[in-house]
Design a protein around this nucleic acid. Sequence first.
RNA 1: GGAGAGGUGGCCGAGUGGUUUAAGGCGCACGCCUGGAAAGCGUGUUUCCCGGAGACGGGAUCGAGGGUUCGAAUCCCUUCCUCUCCGCCA
Length: 423
Amino acid sequence: MLQIHYIRENAEEIIEKLKRRNLDAREWVEEALDLDKKRREAQTKLDQTLAESNKASKEIGNLFKSGQKEAATALREKMAAMKGEVKGMQEGLQKLQEELHEVLTHIPNVPNDLVPEGKSDQDNLEIFSQGKVEKSPENAMPHWELAEKYKLINFELGTKITGAGFPVYTGKGARLQRALIQFFLDYNTEAGYEEIIPPHLVNEASGFGTGQLPDKEGQMYHVTGDNLYLIPTAEVPVTNLLRDEILNQSDLPIKFTAYTPCFRREAGSYGKDVRGLNRLHQFDKVEIVQVRHPDESYQALEEMVEHVKGILEALELPYRIVRLCGGDLGFTSALTYDFEVWSQAQERWLEVSSVSNFEAFQSNRLKLRFRGSEKSTQLCHTLNGSALALPRILAALLENNQTEDGILIPKALQTYTKFEKID
RNA sequence: GGAGAGGUGGCCGAGUGGUUUAAGGCGCACGCCUGGAAAGCGUGUUUCCCGGAGACGGGAUCGAGGGUUCGAAUCCCUUCCUCUCCGCCA
């Protein structure tokens, strides 16, 4: 959510920059400004009336105390008549505030100047690539066939006990999952991220704080009996750890990492894009989250990009980094880099990480502030990234490392798997 | 899940309808005092909104949301959370 005083001062610039999202925000911005103006007028009027009423109430108390009953009664009757007026003003103000909040909730974050123009993921800008993008050998298998051959993942069993998109990992497949999680967490904590194990269900306020609610409600599993949501990413519980906090500037930067399963309904998905591990309802992911001083958030974003690069290099996977274009940029993000690994057998890029700077967009919803040298509080900047999401990494590892004798495990993982090959 | 007790500022803690303008204490900041410090004394110290260049003024805020009243931390209703006991249980 953008701050209203930011919109007040930069309306035209915001409208212009939101065009990068292929969005004409003029109507919303102008409505927000109009509601804001009305709200301030209503606030001023109400405050004046309340000031009078407070004064009169005190007067009544004093009059009764000094025995001037008639004067007190008269004034009391006068104030009783004013009551309806005050209530009307309060309701009017509240309505304006709600309407303003509603409009603000629908305006996405302002893209950074680096965000390229474009409509879809086709228009994302490749800024870096490493490793050989090769065609697969003749007899190469896609990961779902490899998973079956070596009994690593059982999709049918998942379907039996839950439904499609809930795989069961077995044997070395399960062990490899655990190895990846452990490897990622170690890599992240060594870089200074504090490890967190958060709850896997969150309340409505948390869903709002990071921007999943109200708009993306349909993408989360909702436990209606207790009005809780299964987390779609660790970003939600971990970032919300700091909701409603006022930090000292010296507390920054804050860096968290967390492994959690992630639950996504992914309604309407179908076809080869969702085959095997490509898109699941439950998957594992290790997330990194940073809370930063506004002046440092872009430096932090670069730092996180370098960090994720390091992981992919350790896994010896060919990958590229793309800068998301306006049409593909998430609602809450100002700038996002996606990491994609090359899947040989499928001959396509698979997204394995998304690293974003949300600037103050989330922290305004979260009321996550810090106090620096200035008297007033200031919103922090929040960032997060996957480091990393497991399923597609697993898919690429299986497909790219398949040999006639089995699947080779990269060195970095062997400490964790305790085996060098799946055969 | 059942019964009871409670939720007050950065922290502790008083406050059962009107000098509460939330006592008092601790902490913190600044000043005085001092060679310097401690002690002592004084001043300030929630957050958000409105007005103002600012000084400052006004409003809201005692878990949250409603209600009663001229006036609510205080009374009523709803809800969330914490603690104690019981029940269930890894």
